[in-house]
Structure formats: C-alpha cells, structure tokens
Amino acid sequence: MVKPDAGPVTNGTQKTTVHDLAPGLAAALAAVAVSLLLHTVVPALPSMTIAVVLGIAAANVPVTSQWCQGPLRPGLNFAGKHLMRAGIVFLGLKLSLGDIMDLGWISVALIIAVVLLSFAGTFALGKLFKLGGDTPLLIATGFSICGASAIGAMAAVKNTKHEDTVLPVALVTLCGTLAIGVLPLLMHPLGLSTLHFGQWVGAGVHDVGQVVATAQTAGAVALSAAVVVKLTRVVLLAPIVGVAGAIERKRHARALALLESGSPEAAAAPRFPPVVPLFVVGFLLMAALRTTGWMSDGVIEAGALAQDIALGAALFGLGSSVRVRELLNTGLRATVMAMCAWALIAALAFGAVHLMSA
C-alpha cells in the first residue's frame, strides 16, 4: 500500500539534514493551518481528520504525489514519527484526573472494561482476518484507546516501521469519520438521552476530535459527558503501552539468550525497547500537572494548540503515504475487519452506558 521512502537514506556517510527536512515540514505545517481554518469554518469537521484527508489527497494527485515522494518525503516521515510523539505529550494537558474520579468507581470500571474488551476483540478480529505483522495490534490500540495517537505510541514500543502504521491510521480515521455522521442519527431510535448519548460517544468513538465533533451535535451536556468518558479511555494509553513494552522486552531477552547460546534459531542481536517510551512519560507528567490545578487557562489553551499543530502535521505526513489505488487492492480485508471492530466497540459502549444508568 505504501511505496518505499524516496528521501535521503543514511549509507554510512550521507545523513538527513535540516535542509532535507524543511520542505516536508513546511508542507505539513501549511496543511495544519488549512485544517484549523476549515475546522473553524465548519466545526463539525475535526481538524485532525481534515489533516489526514489532505495528506491522502496530496499523495494521490499527480503533481503533489511526485512532491510527496520526492523532496517532501524526509520531512513528512519526520513529522509522522517525531511530531506524533510531541503531540502525545501535549495530549496529557487535556487530562484532569479529578474529572475522571468524579465519574465514580463503577463508571470508571465499566469504561476500563470497554477498553479492555474492545482491545481484545479487535485484536482477535485482526487475527481472524489474517492481517499480518503488527497491524492487528496497532488497529486494536487505536480503536480501543485514542486513535492515531495510540497507534503512534504502540508503534514506538514495537519498533514498527513508519509505513506499517499508515493502514491502521487510515482505518481509524475512516471509522471515526463515519461515526460523526452515523451515531447522531441513532440517538433517538436507540432511546438515548443527551447525557447517555454523550457517554456512548465518549466510550465508543476513537479519536478525541472525532468524539467532540460527534457529541456536540446533541448539545453541551452530551459534549461534556463525552469528553470526560473519552479522556478516561485516554488515561489507559500508558498502562497498555507499558504492558506491551514489557512483553516486547521479554521477547527480545529470549532472542538474546538464543543468540548467546549459539542456537540456529537465533536472529541478529535484538534492540531492547523501553517499557514505557519517554514521550508517554511526558504524557503522564503533563496529565499530572493539569490535575494539580497549577496551570493557567492560557497555558492549557497553548498546550491544546501545540497538540493540534503537532498531531495535525503528523497525520498529514502519515496520510501522504496512502495510495488509494493500492489501498483498495490490498486493504479491503482490513477495511471489513475495521468495520466489524467499529460495530463491536459501539455495542460494548452501548451496553456500558446502560449499566452506568442502571
């Protein structure tokens, strides 16, 4: 689905320089500006979704496609990896643990159960549909926690190649965008109050921006409930990534033991990943700072803008790697799997909302 990078490759003497990165980063930042402007004009369209769509468009229009695969590629790859991590750090400023505790232990336990069941169910669906590599794990992480941000965090722990994150990000964007149009139509047929609709959206929609865009259609009560429930899911990013990191380190330790024993099954010396990446630690620190109440509204708003810029640039970079023709040829099975996972998570969230109100 993704063509090999066309940017500079280190060959022992040649290194990627700031001059190489500048064109792609400038293009990504320009795309963020357009995304934020369009979101301001049409609030129902999340800026992060617009950024992905712009990236996909740039990758599939003949002239801009050549740029994306040529001089822009090094900077776009840098944005997709490193600015994604910066955006995750700033995401922590959205979290106030006090707001989450106000939900009550039963509600928090139900939300955790939805995340864990969503993760396990989506991962099982990925295996059932025979998706290769880390794709089932990345899709499960993105769908169950917080979209592309969670995919980026898990990819860092698994040392997943940049191009292998493109399909999961495209799928989480597709399903989250569909939720914006579909879920509001189901509110009244399902007999949901505005409060319960907001809780359902917060528990079942993937990305924070998509949650806001979906819930705001039902008013302020729904939006407030959706954001609190959603951010409770986001808190689980650190422990789930931490567990994955610990498992990965054990796997690498076994590989190293085989290597040292001279076993014919041994591969090259493994590179041990961190149990919890530094940017996830930064995410937790930001959440802790927000919880203390020491930060002014201006600082929190500046952090939210920094998050939008970093994540928007990263998602444009990832979107610019998507080739629609190849996606249609190779990603159909994954798309069907993602739709099944979307339905599963919506059903789990719906059940949790009814238990919360019981």
Rank of each mutant, 00 (worst) to 15 (best):
E260A: 10
I247Y: 10
T232R: 00
V234T: 12
I247E: 08
A253N: 03
R233L: 02
L259S: 07
K250A: 10
A238E: 05
A246P: 03
E248P: 05
A225L: 08
L237T: 03
E248W: 00
L236A: 13
V229G: 08
V228M: 03
A246H: 01
K250N: 15
S224P: 10
V229N: 08
A253Q: 15
A225R: 09
G242Y: 03
T232W: 00
V235G: 07
L231R: 07
A246W: 10
V227I: 15
L231W: 10
S224Q: 15
I240F: 13
V243P: 09
L236D: 13
R251K: 09
R254I: 02
L231Y: 09
H252F: 02
A246Y: 07
E260T: 14
P239E: 07
A257M: 06
K230W: 00
V243T: 02
A238L: 02
V235N: 08
R251P: 01
S261G: 14
S224C: 11
I240D: 14
E248L: 00
R254T: 00
E248C: 04
A253S: 09
A253Y: 11
I247A: 13
V228R: 06
G245C: 02
L231G: 11
G242V: 07
A246D: 04
V227C: 13
A253K: 12
V229L: 09
G245K: 01
V229Q: 08
E260R: 15
L259V: 01
V228F: 05
V243D: 06
E248Y: 06
A255H: 12
R251I: 04
G262N: 10
R251G: 04
V228W: 04
S224L: 13
R254M: 09
S261P: 06
K250C: 05
K230Q: 05
R251W: 03
R249T: 04
A238R: 02
I247W: 09
A257G: 05
V227S: 07
K250P: 00
A257S: 15
R254H: 14
S261R: 11
A238C: 10
V229D: 06
A244Y: 02
A238N: 03
K230G: 09
E260K: 15
R233P: 01
V229W: 04
A246R: 00
L256P: 00
A257R: 07
I247S: 01
V235A: 03
A257P: 10
V228T: 15
R233V: 10
L231K: 01
A238Y: 07
V243N: 08
V229R: 05
G262T: 02
A257Y: 03
L231D: 09
V228Y: 06
R233T: 00
K230C: 14
A246Q: 01
R249Q: 04
V234I: 12
A244F: 01
A246N: 00
T232L: 04
V235M: 13
E260L: 15
G262M: 00
L259P: 08
A226N: 06
A238K: 00
V243M: 15
G242C: 01
